[in-house]
Design a protein around this nucleic acid. Structure first.
Length: 103
DNA sequence: CTGCTGACGGTTC
DNA sequence: GGAACCGCCAGCA
């Protein structure tokens, strides 16, 4: 068992292309189901310097939490990976990745 | 060390 | 069905 941050980063870097995960999923897998906020915090902090697919992390609403430029960029990145946006939202039933299932 | 903040989630009203 | 509130816990000043 590593640090919360370590686990989160590991998960983010393990998200398969064309799939997405929610903050709650990552937090739960990192042994902190209530730390969904920290997930976003880590992403924002680490993804700037690391090559992390932060755009594959969204909220439970299937939407992008960010607004404006950043949110738009994330949408574009996901669409490039084959993710289809439904009314500016993602169908989690299809694109939500099961952590630990398979890469 | 203390306190505040926050890409959110779940529950309650 | 939707809005509001609380909880949670790692970073950072």
């Amino acid at each position: 068992m590593q640090e919360f941050t370590e686990v989160v980063l590991d998960i983010i870097s393990s998200i398969p292309r064309g799939k997405v995960v929610t903050y709650g999923q990552v937090a739960a897998y990192a042994d902190s189901p209530r730390s969904s906020r920290q997930v976003s915090r880590i992403l924002h902090s680490m993804s700037e310097s690391y090559n992390l697919p932060w755009h594959r992390v969204i909220n439970k609403q299937g939407k992008i939490s960010l607004t404006g430029q950043a949110g738009h960029a994330q949408k574009v990145l996901l669409e490039r990976e084959g993710v289809v946006f439904k009314n500016n939202k993602i169908n989690l039933s299809i694109y939500q990745w099961k952590i630990g299932e398979n890469e």
